[in-house]
Design a protein around this nucleic acid. Structure first.
Length: 591
RNA sequence: GCCCCCAUAGCUCAAUAGGACAGAGCGCCGCCCUCCUAAGGCGGUAGUCCCCGUUCGAAUCGGGGUGGGGGCACCA
């Protein structure tokens, strides 16, 4: 479905053209003065520059032309104001027909502007054997939303968790296991049998093994050396270590999946750095053969400076002086792997802002060496999650908070709020608290621009008042409740109503708000900006609540008018539900 | 030292092409529940870090400052 603003803009563009002006000045926008009008066109003022003519004269011409044209039944009002604004109000029957059409559409009137693409979204980046902490939250929450928005727009999306499952950390764990459980068959070099299918450790053991190993390696050079050797053996394919590594991976991934599930975050593929490893030798060889790479201080590097740079961007190191691969190597090899496996049109990396230069380097190397000539590489950085003091979010004692702990505290806060003045069973309150808590957490994060730092304030996010997830859910629950009551007395078959062609003020405002859905989703899609969806559903919820207060829906005596109300509630519910799904959470039936 | 990002009401965030009077929420002060969930609605309070410039018009663009965060090759 065409966006309402585009339809109106076309009418205006034609009018500008027929008056002898460039079509481009016909652009119509949402009014920023709702007290004066619903939509506005400022083109006359922009055109005044080009045509050296007073803006109000141009605007007058346009208004006059528009008023005599038939298209004018679209509008209730078209008028010129002061310097050269053209103010519009939409006619009620036109608005109603637009909303009705929208409600019949599977995607609620949203038709993506471009061709469907294939996209890989790289979000997550957890390390195996380490619990998720708050630093993983934003990547997961933002990435998940972007994935859903792209899918809604018809794109094929592959969400990849991109595990940190390779490198020295694995050697450290293996070596520490060696110390703690030397009798395991994996450490018996004479062992020739099958390796057990059961992992020789639990997730909680694993979680304590890594920090122990990491600490030990800092104090004990001999241990570090052994870990290094173990890493090397693993990477060379030494069977017992490979078997052990597989166990570490399995145990860890099972646990990670469980935790991501709590966040309503899921990945299509669980690939990791290890999957890129096989591509590294050939890639390095290609870098050398093609002459783009050169040696510098013992390392193999590729220059990525460009003439237009305002800042110096250092060469990208693709091989350390000891011959080992590093972060950039792995990311480059991953691009090759993705090209081979998926041939994506675009790869979007959702990562901390601090990694911007790293990705900049990687992207430039990839383009320079033709790893992915037809693939757009996008870095979507996100800011730091700070505590109320404005400094990076920490636990009371200054440590890194586990994600589980954070989620639990949100649940508790919401649970307490529900129990405060409700008499639902404790059990129901628990279930509802999880759903509502997730909305608090995700909405709190996503309502901010991704690239900016934000302050994580659990009390504010979990509040049921103001611009919060729970407030949105509350509005949705209220609509559901009314529809349920209506259905109980009128039966299911009554849901084919259409919205009213004569509207009260708040009813019309609500409808206009609904028409903005497709443009909002388009903007969120184009700009990778879930916060625009948050802002939209907050406005929509407010519009609904005002309508709700002005009109008694179930008590309406005119059955036709009431049916119109019900239709309006239906579509409002659909838009809200669809929107929160794009953000990655859902609503309970009651709260 | 060099470079990048950020700066909007007491606090947390918006602002769709450079457009009209910079919008919300929290907080604070009033008013509204015999009525579909008052978890709400209505009204009041208060702001673009500073200076200069471009423009009919600047939070937005340019120049200069101040303050905060971050990055500057073998960590990820």
């Amino acid at each position: 479905m065409k966006k309402l603003l585009d339809i109106i803009s076309e009418v205006f563009a034609d009018t500008f053209a027929s008056c002898g002006y460039d079509k481009k000045y016909g652009k119509v926008t949402i009014s920023n003065r709702p007290d004066l009008c619903e939509f506005q066109c400022n083109g006359a003022m922009a055109a005044a520059k080009e045509y050296k003519k007073a803006p109000f004269l141009i605007a007058d011409e346009i208004v006059a032309k528009l008023t005599e044209d038939a298209a004018c039944d679209m509008f209730e009002k078209v008028e010129m104001v002061k310097p050269g604004f053209i103010n519009l109000s939409l006619s009620q029957h036109y608005l109603a027909s637009y909303v009705n059409e929208m409600s019949q559409d599977e995607t609620l009137g949203f038709t993506p502007s471009g061709e469907p693409k294939k996209i890989v979204i790289d979000y997550g980046g957890p390390n195996v054997a380490k619990p998720l902490h708050v630093g993983h939250l934003r990547s997961a929450v933002i990435g998940e939303s972007l994935k859903r928005i792209h899918r809604f727009a018809g794109d094929t999306v592959i969400g990849d968790v991109h595990l940190g499952d390779w490198g020295l950390q694995m050697g450290l764990i293996i070596e520490e296991l060696h110390c703690q459980k030397p009798d395991l068959v994996y450490f018996d070099e004479s062992y020739t049998g099958e390796y057990p299918s059961e992992a020789p450790f639990t997730i909680s053991e694993l979680e304590q093994i890594y920090p122990a190993a990491s600490a030990k390696s800092k104090e004990d050079p001999e241990f570090k050396e052994k870990a290094h050797t173990a890493t090397l053996k693993l990477q060379e394919g030494y069977a017992p270590y490979r078997a052990l590594w597989q166990h570490i991976l399995n145990v860890s991934v099972t646990d990670l999946k469980k935790n991501y599930e709590k966040l309503n975050v899921s990945f299509d593929v669980w690939k990791g750095e290890s999957d890129a490893d096989p591509y590294i030798p050939d890639m390095i060889q290609m870098f050398v053969d093609s002459g783009v790479a050169h040696e510098s201080q013992g390392a193999l590097v590729i220059d990525v400076e460009e003439e237009t740079d305002t800042k110096t961007i250092p060469p990208c190191i693709v091989r350390k002086s000891d011959g080992a691969a590093l972060y950039a190597t792995s990311d480059l090899a991953t691009i090759i792997q993705r090209e081979q496996d998926y041939k994506p049109d675009e790869i979007i990396y959702v990562a901390d802002n601090r990694q911007e230069m790293h990705f900049n380097q990687v992207f430039r190397v990839a383009k320079k060496t033709n790893l992915c000539p037809n693939t757009k590489l996008t870095f979507q950085g996100f800011g730091t999650m700070n505590g109320k003091d404005g400094k990076p979010f920490k636990t009371r004692d200054g440590g890194v908070m586990r994600l589980e702990t954070l989620i639990q505290s949100i649940h508790d806060a919401v649970y307490a709020r529900i129990m405060e003045n409700r008499t639902v069973s404790e059990e129901e309150a628990r279930t509802v608290a999880e759903i509502v808590g997730l909305s608090a957490l995700k909405y709190g994060d996503l309502s901010n621009q991704a690239s900016k730092d934000y302050i994580f304030d659990i009390d504010r996010f979990a509040s049921f008042e103001g611009n919060t997830g729970p407030y949105i859910l509350y509005t949705l629950v209220r609509i559901k409740s009314i529809l349920e009551k209506y259905t109980a007395s009128h039966g299911e078959a009554t849901f084919s109503h259409t919205v009213n062609t004569k509207q009260t003020a708040t009813e019309k405002t609500l409808m206009i708000e609904l028409t903005k859905f497709n443009a909002t989703i388009q903007a969120a899609y184009d700009e990778l900006a879930p916060h625009k969806i948050c802002a939209y559903i907050y406005d929509l919820s407010n519009a609904f609540n005002k309508f709700y207060h002005e009109n008694n829906i179930l008590g309406e005596s005119d059955p036709e008018k009431q049916q119109g109300f019900i239709a309006l509630l239906q579509i409002t519910k659909n838009v809200l539900e669809t929107s929160i799904d794009l953000l990655g959470f859902s609503a309970p039936d009651r709260m």
